[in-house]
């Protein structure tokens, strides 16, 4: 059961003079749902983006699916196995909802249009967006856009899903619809790494929570352990502040 999917060893990453990741070790097992929490600028998103090679770490090792991805020859084939959802949804504005889900399949997986469409409709149905299949993406609300983005990523049959603050750009009343879709995926056993500020969601859905602070992993553990008996003073003060804000 504890088959590691992502193994990160001692990665460092700087943007100019600013060192964002200062030696992070991080492992995610198959079927695990891990939430990354922490203050803005603590390196959570950078860590996530390194896993998808949207950023390249300056040093360290990243093994995903048992493959050294920093030295892989075919980056595109690797990325196709890793789904990613962004804070700003990043849907393709020149396509409608269905095409957003079909086009990448045609380009990357080289399957027939019928097969791709069938798959797209299946996942759009799953996120409750099937009836919007023909809609222009610019006419959708934020929550709808994020659900389409999730369906688009699922169409590639990813073995790992990365979520980079998927609800941070949403109006409060739309957060729930996106989180419930993500919760469903978590229950189905999809391996997920989620950067989030939604503490209740993190507590509810994760197998493990990782608290990052100043470019390092300060503390990690099960939701109960981290929320109820945090070992580190920094974790405690962050959680207290977040929970106070939520009220």
């Amino acid at each position: 059961m504890t088959e590691p999917i992502v193994e990160i060893k001692n990665i460092h990453k700087s943007f100019g003079p600013l060192e964002v990741l200062k030696g992070v070790d991080f492992t995610v097992n198959k079927g695990e749902v891990v939430c990354l929490i922490g203050r803005s600028g603590s390196g959570k998103s950078t860590l996530l983006r390194c896993i998808n090679l949207l950023e390249k770490p300056d040093s360290g090792v990243i093994n995903v699916f048992g493959q050294d991805i920093l030295h892989t020859r075919n980056v595109n084939a690797y990325r196709a196995q890793v789904g990613m959802c962004f804070q700003q949804f990043n849907l393709f504005n020149n396509m409608n909802v269905l095409e957003n889900c079909v086009k990448p399949q045609l380009k990357v997986l080289h399957i027939s249009k019928n097969e791709a469409t069938e798959k797209a409709l299946k996942f759009l149905d799953k996120v409750g967006m099937k009836k919007f299949a023909g809609a222009d993406v610019r006419t959708l609300s934020g929550g709808q856009k994020q659900r389409v983005a999730i369906a688009r990523a699922l169409c590639m049959s990813p073995k790992l899903m990365l979520f980079d603050e998927p609800t941070s750009a949403l109006d409060p009343e739309m957060v729930g619809e996106v989180l419930s879709v993500m919760k469903e995926l978590a229950n189905e056993g999809l391996t997920m790494i989620i950067v989030t500020h939604e503490m209740n969601f993190a507590r509810d859905v994760s197998d493990r929570i990782v608290f990052m602070d100043q470019g390092k992993i300060e503390e990690q553990g099960s939701p109960d352990q981290l929320f109820n008996t945090p070992k580190s003073e920094r974790t405690r003060s962050f959680l207290n502040a977040s929970i106070a804000n939520a009220r």
Binding site: A77, A80, N90, L91, P104, V108, R152
Partner: peptide, 12 residues
């Protein structure tokens, strides 16, 4: 962001 999303889906 759209290019980033396309790359993340495996498009060249």
């Amino acid at each position: 962001g759209q290019s980033e999303a396309a790359r993340s889906l495996g498009m060249s």
